[in-house]
Simulated assay, not measured.
Amino acid sequence: MRDILNRVLENCELTFERLRLSLPDKKRPFYEKLNIDNTRGALVYGQRGVGKTTFLLDKIRNKNFLYFSADNPLISSLPLYDFVQEIFKKGYEGIVIDEIHHSNSWSLNVKALFDDYPDKYIWISDSSNLMLKKSVADLSRRFVQYRIPMLSFREYVYLVTGRLTEKIDIFNFQKSFLSDISELNILKLFNDYLNFGIRPIFFEGEYCSRLKNLIEKSLYSDIPFYVKSIQDSHLRLMNAIIGHLLISPVPTINVSGMCSEWGIGKEKLYDILYVMEHSELINIVRKKNKHNYSKGSKIFLSDPSCYHCFRGDIGNVREAFFVLSMKELYELYASDDEKECDYIVNNKKFEIGGRNKKRKNAEYIVSDDLDIPLGNRLPLWMAGFQY
């Protein structure tokens, strides 16, 4: 067994060296806020394709750490504890284990390694906080959690143009920030970002094909790991919900109609929506003080570029982006009265629409065809400059 462990370990060393040499020159600015260096036990999570692996590889490129992915067939067949023990025996100060859920009894093994090797660093990553909810009881006292969100528009502009601007507080900004982007075709960049720039996989080309593969992996590979009782019919229903949200001009679902069509009860449908939300496949915007999905809630695909890549109804893209950006920083609710406004953010009323959108009783109107702020009218792209 030890000979096998050593052969696999050498393979991991070779793979890690290749990955280290292929790291991109430009990194997501968001990485700078993740103070992981002195954290002995770290759990990094976020949707597939947001840059978790790049972040971790960059952090350990000059450390005496070893990286490997638990979905590697050579590794998934080995006892995790024994394999990591062999790595530590070789003198490594820490490990990074990607796609940790592929390892059998991973939480028990990681907990034991953390306790048995108090001088070693153990960093793990995965794609969903559903995994955390299942196993965090064993790890919460030991492991610090770090979430990596979707790429912000501010980050996209930096990665594409090299221009890194200050973050904007959308509730209290100085117009002087406009001088930082004055030479940029900001609306063209924003359109490109919404269509094929929400995840940094755009560097690799074939964005839409890659995105479709990531969505399928999340749906059909990841979720069955996290929710063992899930049935094939439930996965097909999730796919149907995604399809419905893609083409529906109204960002919601008919609960009674869907229950009737699929032969399930409301509670089961709510459970499925919960799984999809916590897998970050969808964003549900509820009314204030409504904790479950309820009438009047809005549902969007969490990645706005899905509407373009899957040839959906692009009418919901601007709201999907607004929700994605604002939800990252603030409490966000659907309005109780749509005659008043669309959303309540930080106790302020927001209305989303084009240049000629009427104000209603909103304090802010957010327009997708506006390049600079004008009075209480804000360009939609500004929501993406907040992180």
Rank of each mutant, 00 (worst) to 15 (best):
L5Y: 13
V8I: 15
E17Y: 11
R18W: 02
L19K: 12
L19W: 07
P29C: 10
K33T: 13
D37M: 11
T39C: 11
R40N: 06
G41F: 11
A42T: 04
L43V: 07
G49E: 03
F55W: 01
I60G: 07
N62H: 12
N64M: 12
F68T: 10
A70Y: 06
N72R: 07
N72W: 02
P73S: 10
L74C: 02
L78W: 09
Y81H: 06
K90E: 06
G91Y: 13
G91D: 06
Y92F: 14
Y92E: 00
Y92P: 00
E93S: 15
E93G: 13
H102W: 14
H102C: 10
N104F: 13
S105Y: 11
W106Y: 15
L113A: 04
Y117K: 01
I122N: 09
S125M: 01
S127Y: 05
L132Q: 10
K133G: 14
K133Y: 11
D138I: 08
Q145W: 03
R147A: 11
I148Q: 12
P149V: 11
L151W: 06
L151R: 07
Y156H: 04
V160I: 14
V160H: 03
G162V: 00
E166W: 03
I170G: 07
L178E: 09
E183H: 12
E183A: 10
L184Q: 04
I186G: 06
I186M: 05
K188D: 05
L194F: 08
L194H: 08
L194Q: 09
I198T: 13
R199Q: 09
P200W: 08
F202N: 02
Y207K: 03
C208S: 13
S209D: 14
R210T: 11
K212N: 02
N213F: 08
L219N: 02
D222C: 13
V227H: 07
K228E: 15
K228Y: 12
Q231I: 05
D232S: 12
D232R: 10
S233D: 12
S233C: 03
M238S: 04
N239L: 08
N239T: 03
A240D: 09
H244M: 08
L246Y: 03
N254H: 09
N254W: 07
G257K: 14
W262E: 08
I264Y: 00
K266V: 14
E267T: 13
L269C: 11
Y274N: 12
V275E: 02
H278I: 00
L281C: 13
L281F: 11
N283T: 11
V285N: 04
K287A: 00
K288H: 10
K290M: 11
K290R: 15
I299G: 03
L301M: 07
H308P: 01
H308F: 15
C309A: 06
R311K: 15
R318M: 15
F322E: 00
F322K: 01
F322G: 01
S325H: 05
S325T: 10
K327M: 11
E328R: 14
E328C: 01
L332F: 04
D336S: 13
N347S: 15
G353Q: 04
N356S: 14
K357L: 10
K358V: 12
K358T: 14
R359P: 02
K360L: 14
A362Y: 01
I365Y: 08
L374R: 03
N376H: 12
N376F: 09
N376W: 08
L378R: 06
L380Q: 02
A383H: 05
G384E: 07
F385G: 01
Q386M: 08
Q386L: 03
